[in-house]
């Protein structure tokens, strides 16, 4: 639709232009006063105003069948979750330019392993903290979690206690924590953690094929 009409600048034409917004009540007080002053003297514009109200009411009466489909968007959120975790994403893209599927759980787990090796190589290769009086090394972590940014410490503790997890390391440079849970119960623990609103990400960090 070509816009070829040149609107004139007289008060009559200005009022004609502004009528839709007089009807929906969004004109400034000054504009509304100016339009209403003109309407008092102009029968033609009063007729236009009536027609305008009818048109607006008719347009408002048009509805359509529509319901929100949160599940559809949620699936996309899950597929694109790493995009929100910028440091992780940046390292992953740098280190793994292989076109792996973003949604792949194994790819995410492998990428996390790369992150830890890359960002905290010393901790990953040689656990730095040992319990006093114990010669044994810290247990090996078998999953990694990332908490939502605003999570309180008590909620973090509650999440770990809900799956009897031990914190092995963290937070890393990516803000993640390495945990150890009973290996046979790991899948259940992952499910429980993923259902927890305080958890942004929970992934195994060794290949399931080796279990």
């Amino acid at each position: 639709m070509a816009e070829i009409i040149q609107l004139r600048s007289g008060p009559h034409d200005e009022v004609q232009q502004l009528l839709p917004w007089l009807v929906n009540g969004t004109l400034s007080p000054d504009e509304a006063a100016r339009v209403e002053a003109h309407l008092a003297d102009c029968a033609e514009c009063r007729g236009e105003l009536v027609a305008e109200r009818q048109l607006a009411a008719a347009v408002q009466s048009i509805s359509l069948d529509s319901e929100g489909d949160w599940e559809r968007l949620e699936q996309r959120l899950n597929a694109e979750a790493p995009a929100r975790i910028r440091p992780f994403t940046a390292v992953w893209r740098k280190r793994v330019p292989l076109g792996w599927a973003v949604a792949s759980r194994f790819a995410v787990a492998a990428a996390f392993a790369l992150v830890f090796v890359n960002v905290t190589p010393r901790q990953a290769a040689e656990p730095q903290y040992r319990a006093l009086g114990s010669p044994a090394a810290m247990p090996t972590a078998n999953l990694v979690v990332q908490f939502q940014p605003a999570t309180r410490v008590s909620d973090m503790q509650g999440a770990l206690e809900s799956v009897n997890a031990r914190m092995v390391d963290g937070p890393t440079g990516t803000g993640a924590y390495l945990l150890r849970v009973d290996q046979p119960k790991r899948e259940l623990a992952l499910k429980t953690l993923r259902d927890n609103q305080a958890i942004a990400l929970a992934e195994p960090i060794d290949a399931p094929a080796r279990e």
Binding site: P20, W21, N24, T26, L27, A56, V59, Q60
Partner: peptide, 17 residues
């Protein structure tokens, strides 16, 4: 044009917005 009609008549927005 459809956008202007809908934003004015249905969403009740002012012309500046």
């Amino acid at each position: 044009h459809r956008a202007v009609v809908d934003l004015t008549y249905f969403h009740d927005l002012g012309y500046r917005e």
